[in-house]
Design a protein around this nucleic acid. Structure first.
Length: 393
DNA sequence: TCTGGGGTCCTAGGACCC
DNA sequence: TCTGGGGTCCTAGGACCC
């Protein structure tokens, strides 16, 4: 199984781990004995590895289908319009699955249907029932109905815990019940989102394939600390680091931000410990992508937030109110000024930091931080670091 | 005493997703 | 003792406009 950041909770489990009754999201310390007794293999999360393997799978999918929406690190929607005229969709799905497995070693499941919501449900079935061979084609109405009756409504994409509870009270228990429900009632009792979900279950496509990724509206960088932080200087290092990371993400999006929020908090699980959680936001005079501008404001915000005498467990930085380059309309009477060469300096920093030859950072971020998150069981970055290359003997 | 109709923008809170 | 991180969308309500 794989752990969350800071080696805190279980966030992914193999079939075997699930069979042993390991639940999603449990804190590791609660099942320490079980892990030892049953010899469960435990790994810290390794985002460098996952991102690289994801890219390999996605680029392969893009070669196999004309239009692809990369929906998340491990999911994609493929437009199969017209494909059915050339080859049976079920067979096409099996070919894609085989090719991905052969070229990347990643096992995938495939669901095929006229709408995204039905495709997700088909995928779920492909994953759940080994007899399908990992591919389910839901093109035929009769097969759609069969599966809808089988699936509890909480398995439907877009129906979470709260909606499941409310739908249950209305007697809507299966995906089929939701598909049959009155659209006007759904709209009135819930929202347009639930109405769309019901329409999609009926084969009416309401959600388009989004092949170009939309620009982000906010960027967050937040982390729990490896150990509790009790002094301001250390907390400041963390906030400076998170600010730098958020700014880096912002620049990789080619955007500029006009608002920054800093938050800090103590742990919430120990009722005997004094708790404190707070956030503060500042608006910048002009949009910026310069780490120096953002850091300058972030440390002032931290000054406002800081309270002595607490054991802090987490801090975070959020950027919002974004502008594309050249879009912002400055004020007439007090136009802000970008620092000279701001863009060049940031580009140089980002380039060095991505070159693999070394790192540069701001002094405020500190060196050898004590607060850095725990990753005690990290697997090698097999595909992105020379020293970690897989050895075949 | 009686008080219209049609809009936009912003924010907080709630819900969902991976 | 130890409990993750990063996003989006929708709606209601308040404030404002003509």
């Amino acid at each position: 199984m794989v752990l969350s950041n800071n080696d805190g909770c279980v966030v992914a489990r193999s079939r075997e781990a699930k069979a042993l009754g390991i639940k999603m999201g449990v804190p590791v310390f609660q099942i320490r004995d079980q892990i030892r007794q049953q010899g469960i293999a435990v790994f810290s999360s390794n985002y460098a590895l996952y991102a690289d393997m994801s890219q390999r799978v996605m680029s392969l999918l893009e070669a196999l289908a004309p239009r692809v929406e990369v929906y998340s690190i491990d999911e994609a929607f493929l437009d199969l319009s017209g494909v059915g005229n050339v080859v049976a969709l079920d067979r096409f799905g099996r070919e894609v699955k085989a090719k991905v497995e052969q070229w990347t070693g990643i096992p995938v499941c495939i669901g095929i249907a006229p709408t995204k919501t039905l495709a997700k449900l088909a995928n779920h079935a492909a994953k759940q029932y080994p007899a399908t061979g990992g591919v389910v084609d839901l093109t035929a109405k009769t097969r759609q109905h069969k599966l809808l009756r089988l699936m509890p409504v909480n398995e439907v994409w877009g129906i979470g815990r709260q909606l499941t509870r409310k739908l249950d009270a209305l007697g809507i228990k299966s995906a089929y019940d939701l598909a049959q429900a009155n659209l006007k009632t759904l709209r009135r009792s819930f929202s347009v989102v639930v109405e769309r979900t019901a329409r999609e279950l009926n084969g009416e496509s309401c959600l388009d394939l989004e092949t170009v990724q939309a620009a982000k509206q906010q960027i967050i960088c937040s982390r729990s600390f490896g150990e509790r932080v009790t002094d301001k200087a250390t907390l400041k290092e963390a906030v400076c680091s998170y600010t730098a990371r958020a700014a880096e993400k912002l620049r990789s999006e080619s955007q500029y931000t006009k608002a920054i929020t800093v938050f800090i908090r103590t742990g919430m699980f120990n009722p005997n410990e004094p708790q404190y959680s707070n956030s503060a936001t500042a608006v910048l005079p002009i949009p910026t992508g310069d780490t120096r501008d953002l850091t300058q404001v972030a440390v002032v915000l931290l000054d406002h937030l800081w309270r002595e005498g607490y054991r802090y467990i987490k801090a975070g930085v959020m950027l919002s109110d974004f502008y594309a380059p050249g879009v912002y309309q400055p004020e007439l009477f007090k136009p802000g000024q970008e620092r000279p060469n701001a863009k060049s300096l940031m580009t140089v920093m980002d380039t060095i930091n991505h070159s693999g030859k070394g790192k540069v950072w701001f002094a405020g971020q500190g060196v050898n931080p004590a607060w850095i998150m725990k990753r005690g069981r990290l697997s090698p970055a097999y595909t992105t670091r020379w020293n970690d290359l897989l050895k075949v003997r």
